[in-house]
Structure formats: C-alpha cells, structure tokens
C-alpha cells in the first residue's frame, strides 16, 4: 500500500522529471545553454530566455487547463491573443495608461470567453465546433479593429510597465506567477476546483450532487479568454506591435501540448496548473535548444508533433487503468 502511494506520488511528479531531464539534455548537448549570469542588474542566459519566451504559452495554457479539466476545449485562444493584443495596442496609443491597455485586453478576452461559454453551455454545441468558429471570427474582428495594419505600441506606458524588472525579474514572469496564484487559489481554496473536476469527470453525477455544472463550465471559458488576453498583451509588448494577422497563430496547439505534457487528461476531471507551466517550459527548452544548435524552426515543429503523439498516447493507458 505504501509503495502504491509512493508510485502515485511519483507519477504526479513525472512532468517535473521530464522538465529536469529536458533541461539536462539541452545543457549537455548545447554549448552555453546552462550558462546563467547577472549582468547590468538582470539575469542573462538561455535558461532565463526560455522562461521569458514561454510566457504567452504559459498564460494561455493556464486558462486552457481549466477548460480541459471541465471536459471542454478552446481552439480560439490564439485568435484571442491577437484580438487582445490589438485592443491593448489601441488603448495604449495616444498616451493611454497601462491600466487601460490591460483593461481593454481583458474585456476583449472575457467577451470572447463568454461567447464560447454561451455557445457550449447555452446552445449545447460541441466545444470544438463552437471554438473553431469563434477562432475564425475573432481573428477577423481583430484584423478589422487593427484596420488591416500592424498597430505599433512604441513608447507607450504598456511597454514601460511590462519592461519593468521588479527584483530583476521581467514583469511578464510576475504576471504568470500572479495568474497561477489566482487560479490555484480559486481551485484549491474556494471549492471551484472541486466543482470543476467533478463536472469534468462525470457531469451527470456532478449535477445530481448539486454542482451547477453549466455555470462552472461557463466560468472556465471566461477564465480562459481572460488568460489568453493577458498573453496577447505580453506578446504584443514583446514585439512592440500588435499584428492581428499572425499574433498567436498556432498558439492553441502549443498550449494544448503544454497541458497534455503536464498530465491534465484531455478527457477532463483533473486540473494540473503547476504541471501545465512545467509542460510549457519543456516545450520552450526543446525549441530554444534546437534553435541554439542552429537547426531550422521546422525541426522543433517536427519534435512537437512527435511529442504530442507520444505524450497523449502514454498518458492514456495509465489513466484508463486508474479508473478501471
């Protein structure tokens, strides 16, 4: 019995081991990968780069973890990233405050999330269908709002805010930590997690047990929209421009991949937020290491494709056995 418990505990740390393994592999195989130094009041090094570059995927994947835990899926996150980026860029133009930019972006994300939630919960459409449609529409709306051009956000308060380095850490990483803390608290402390995991595991039983399944699932889509909006702000401020046509393109794939590597089952019933962050980092380590080897980006694409299949195929039987 003790060994069974130990094994279960061990299994829940698998993503962490994978992360360490990936980092070691990258460090051994790649010159300069493991170097990390303090220069001009900030950290410099590939490991640090990995963390910063993974921010948009981490933010999106945190939101997506909630949706997937509830047994759903959200394909529109990439478009929301673009839409929110445009929103933030427009709001921060003409000397708008960073607050206004974040507010505009969040409003965009929450709106799309509410539409997704309404289509899935209210109209009863399959999540994949509903969010596929919003994915197409929202990118169009983003392009429309941007007026068909790339909206620059040079010198605005937003770039200054996200460029700030509290404690030598970039603000975007602080944002990830904050969102994680928020979701983790909601999940752990307010019983939302219990409702969510019950709804994803067995919606019929959850309904009979008095869980407001519809409202819970609706909330996950809204949260995912909000999280994607934050990712949109970060992505836009990184390149100092909001590109409605290509921002967040295929980001939904990376985010789903991060969730899968983190061990959140696609069939729902479990939300593993920390493991999702780990999954996003693993992906970014792979991409960065391959890039440092001078390999073309398409190799990373290939590796990702192979990882999706392996991770999901491996995750499946263990889950199946656990409930049998």
């Amino acid at each position: 019995m003790a060994s069974e418990r130990f094994r279960a505990k061990l299994a829940s740390y698998t993503p962490l081991f994978v992360l360490i393994g990936a980092w070691l592999l990258a460090a051994v195989a790649t010159p300069h990968f493991a170097e990390l130094e303090w220069r001009d009041g900030r950290l410099v090094g590939a490991t640090f780069d990995v963390c910063v570059r993974a921010v948009p995927v981490m933010l999106v994947a945190l939101g997506l973890t909630l949706v997937i835990a509830g047994g759903g899926i959200d394909l529109s996150v990439g478009s929301v990233v673009a839409f929110a980026g445009v929103g933030a860029a427009l709001a921060s133009g003409d000397g708008g405050s960073a607050f206004a930019a974040f507010g505009a972006a969040l409003a965009c994300g929450v709106l799309v999330g509410a539409v997704n939630g309404g289509l899935v919960v209210g109209l009863g459409l399959a999540p994949i269908v509903a969010t596929l449609a919003t994915m197409i529409v929202v990118r169009g709306v983003a392009q429309l709002c941007a007026g068909g051009v790339i909206v620059p956000i040079d010198r605005s308060a937003l770039v200054a805010t996200l460029g700030a380095k509290p404690l030598g850490l970039p603000a975007s990483l602080v944002l990830v930590a904050a969102l994680f803390a928020l979701f983790a608290t909601l999940k752990r402390r307010f019983g939302f997690g219990l409702y969510l995991e019950a709804s994803g595991d067995n919606p019929r039983a959850a309904r009979l047990a008095g869980v407001p399944v519809g409202r819970v699932l609706f909330a996950t889509y809204v949260a995912c929209g909000g999280a994607s909006a934050l990712a949109g702000v970060v992505a836009a401020s990184e390149i100092r421009a909001a590109d409605a046509a290509s921002a967040g393109l295929y980001l939904e794939l990376d985010a789903i991949l991060a969730v899968v590597i983190g061990g959140t089952p696609l069939s729902g019933g479990r939300a593993r937020l920390l493991a999702t962050l780990v999954g996003a980092l693993v992906l970014q380590i792979l991409a960065t290491a391959l890039l440092m080897h001078g390999l073309a980006p398409h190799v990373a694409l290939f590796v990702k494709g192979a990882v999706v299949l392996l991770a999901s195929a491996l995750a499946r039987p263990s889950w199946g056995r656990a409930i049998a």
């Binding site: 995991e197 019950a198 595991d201 067995n202 019929r204 039983a205 959850a206 009979l208 019933g269 479990r270």
Partner: peptide
C-alpha cells in the same frame, strides 16, 4: 457508476 460518483476523483 454512471450517475452517482466521479470515479476519477
């Protein structure tokens, strides 16, 4: 199993 419990929890 179908209506009563969340078996994965």
């Amino acid at each position: 199993k179908v209506d009563g419990l969340c078996l994965g929890l």
